[in-house]
Amino acid sequence: MVAVCGTSMTTKCFFVMASLYVLLALSQAEAETTQGSTAILITVDQSGKGDYEKIQDAIDAVPSNNVDLVFIRVKPGVYKEKITVPADKPFITISGTKAVDTIITWNDSGDIFESATFSVLASDFIGRYLTIQNTHGSGGKAVALRVSGDRAAFYVCRILSYQDTILDDTGRHYYNNCYIEGATDFICGNGASFFEKCHLHSISDGGGAITAQRRMSPSEDTGFIFFGCKITSVKTAVLGRPWGVYSRVIFAFTYMPNAILPQGWDNWGHSADQLSSVYYGQYECSGPGAVTSKRVDWARVLTSEEAAPLITKDSIDAKAWIRATPNSFKKKAFSTKN
Rank of each mutant, 00 (worst) to 15 (best):
K12D: 05
L121E: 06
S95E: 14
D108F: 02
K330V: 04
Y155D: 06
V296P: 12
F224K: 08
L121S: 05
G96Y: 03
V249D: 04
C178F: 00
D221T: 09
F186P: 05
I55L: 01
G244Y: 01
N107L: 00
G77D: 08
A192Y: 12
V44Q: 05
A25C: 02
Y283P: 12
K319L: 01
A192Q: 15
D101V: 08
V4R: 13
S27R: 07
T102D: 04
Q274D: 10
H173F: 01
S193G: 06
A3Y: 11
S315F: 15
R151T: 04
S193D: 08
S8W: 00
G48V: 07
T33I: 00
G281Q: 09
R73M: 02
H201V: 01
I55K: 08
I311V: 14
L275K: 08
G208Q: 02
L121W: 04
G269A: 14
G287N: 01
D221R: 14
A87N: 03
F14W: 00
K337C: 08
R151S: 02
C5I: 04
T170N: 13
F14I: 04
S148N: 13
A212H: 11
G289Q: 09
P288N: 09
S202G: 10
N134Q: 01
P63M: 09
D57M: 02
T336G: 04
N176W: 07
G223K: 00
V296W: 12
K294W: 11
K230I: 03
I260C: 14
W106Q: 13
S233D: 11
E284W: 12
G137P: 07
K75F: 08
R151A: 06
T254N: 12
A31L: 09
S47N: 09
K332S: 15
T33G: 01
G171E: 03
P86I: 11
D168G: 13
F224P: 12
Y155K: 01
W298G: 11
V85E: 06
M9S: 11
L239C: 09
T38P: 00
T102A: 04
G207V: 00
K319T: 06
Q46S: 13
L130E: 00
C188R: 05
L310Y: 14
F154N: 08
L23D: 07
M17G: 07
T292C: 07
A324R: 05
I166G: 04
S148D: 12
E196W: 10
T211G: 04
